[in-house]
C-alpha cells in the first residue's frame, strides 16, 4: 500500500513567499484634492520609519508625482516601458534624493491611460510587493480607465477628501465602486479649522457622517504645503511642524500603531480660548 503523499504544510507553503508588501491606492474621484501631495508625503513618512516604499504614478498622460518629489530630472523610463517589457523594473525605478528607501515608478507623459493592460499592471504591482514593504499607487482623478488601472493591483485604499460638498459626493461614489474589499480609510485634506469654527466649512465629523470611514488623518490647509510641493521637497521631510507630524502620524497608523485620534490645531483667538476655558463653548 502506498503511503499517503505528504501534504505540504503551511510552513512549506509560506516559505518561498517572504512577507509581502502592502499595495495601497490613493484615490478620490475628484481632481485637485491633493492625492499626489498625499502620496508623496505618506511615502516619505513611511520611509522615515525605515520601511522600503515604492511610489507608482498611475496618472498616465498627466504625471506629477515626479515633480512633487523633485525627481523630474531623474526620470528616464516609465511604467509603460516596464509593462511593455522595453525596460527592466530596476532600470525604471528612480531612487529618491532624500529618503534612500523610497523609489518612484513614474507615469508615461506622452501616452494614454487606455494603453495600460490591466493584467500586466496587476502583475507589476505584485512584483513590486515582493520587493517593497509598501507600494503606494497615486490614482488619477475620475473613475475611468486610469482609476481602474490604479486600483487593479491594490489591496487597500486611502481616499482623500476636502471638506467640500462636491468632493464628498465624488468620494462617496468612489467608495461605492471600491466596495469593502479595499478597506478604504479617509484622509480629510485642506481643512481650515478657523472656517469650520465659523460654520463656513464642513467639519471632519460632517464629512465622515456621510462617508463613514475609519479616519486615517486630517491635514490642514497650510501655505507651506503648496510651497514644499512646488519645490519638490515634500513637507513630511521636515523634522518640525504640525503638518509633518500629521503625516508621520498617518504613517504610524498605516503601520498599525495605535496613535491618538487625528486633530488639527485650531489657531484660536484669545477670546475663543477664554470662552472654552470657562466652558463657554461646546
Amino acid at each position: 500500500m502506498h503511503e499517503p503523499v505528504a501534504q505540504p504544510t503551511t510552513e512549506v507553503l509560506a516559505a518561498p513567499t517572504a512577507p509581502r508588501g502592502r499595495a495601497i491606492v490613493v484615490t478620490s474621484g475628484k481632481g485637485g484634492v491633493g492625492k499626489t501631495t498625499t502620496t508623496a508625503n505618506i511615502g516619505h513618512a513611511l520611509a522615515r520609519r525605515g520601511a522600503t516604499v515604492a511610489l507608482v504614478d498611475a496618472d498616465i498622460g498627466l504625471r506629477n508625482l515626479d515633480l512633487v518629489l523633485g525627481l523630474e530630472q531623474r526620470v528616464r523610463y516609465h511604467v509603460l516601458d516596464v509593462l511593455e517589457e522595453k525596460i527592466s523594473l530596476d532600470d525604471a525605478l528612480v531612487r529618491d534624493k532624500h529618503s534612500p528607501t523610497l523609489c518612484l515608478l513614474a507615469a508615461a507623459q506622452a501616452r494614454e491611460k487606455d494603453d495600460v493592460d490591466e493584467t500586466k499592471m496587476k502583475a507589476l504591482i505584485d512584483q513590486l510587493r515582493e520587493r517593497f514593504d509598501y507600494v503606494i499607487i497615486d490614482s488619477p482623478a475620475g473613475i475611468e480607465q486610469g482609476f481602474k488601472n490604479a486600483v487593479i493591483g491594490a489591496s487597500e485604499a486611502i481616499v482623500v477628501c476636502t471638506p467640500e460638498v462636491s468632493a464628498v459626493r465624488d468620494v462617496d461614489r468612489v467608495i461605492g465602486l471600491l466596495g469593502n474589499a479595499f478597506r478604504p480609510q479617509l484622509i480629510v485634506n485642506r481643512l481650515r479649522p478657523a472656517l469650520v469654527k465659523k460654520g463656513k466649512m464642513l467639519s471632519v465629523e460632517d464629512v465622515n457622517a456621510i462617508l463613514r470611514l475609519p479616519l486615517l488623518g486630517v491635514i490642514g490647509d497650510e501655505p507651506e504645503i503648496i510651497i514644499t510641493t512646488n519645490r519638490g521637497m515634500p513637507i513630511a521631510l521636515q523634522d518640525e511642524g504640525a503638518t509633518a507630524a500629521a503625516y508621520r502620524a498617518i504613517a504610524a497608523r498605516i503601520a498599525g500603531e495605535d496613535v491618538a485620534a487625528p486633530t488639527v490645531e485650531v489657531k484660536d483667538s484669545f477670546m475663543d480660548r477664554l470662552g472654552s476655558f470657562f466652558g463657554g463653548r461646546r
Binding site: K113, G142, T229
Partner: peptide, 28 residues
Amino acid sequence: PAGIEGGFRNAIAGVGEAIVVTTPEVSA
C-alpha cells in the same frame, strides 16, 4: 471632468472655444 480620458474627449467634442482653469502650482 478632470483628466484627459473619455470624459474630456466628450466634453470638448461639441465646443467652439475653451477656458482652461489652473492654479498657480507646478503640478496643475
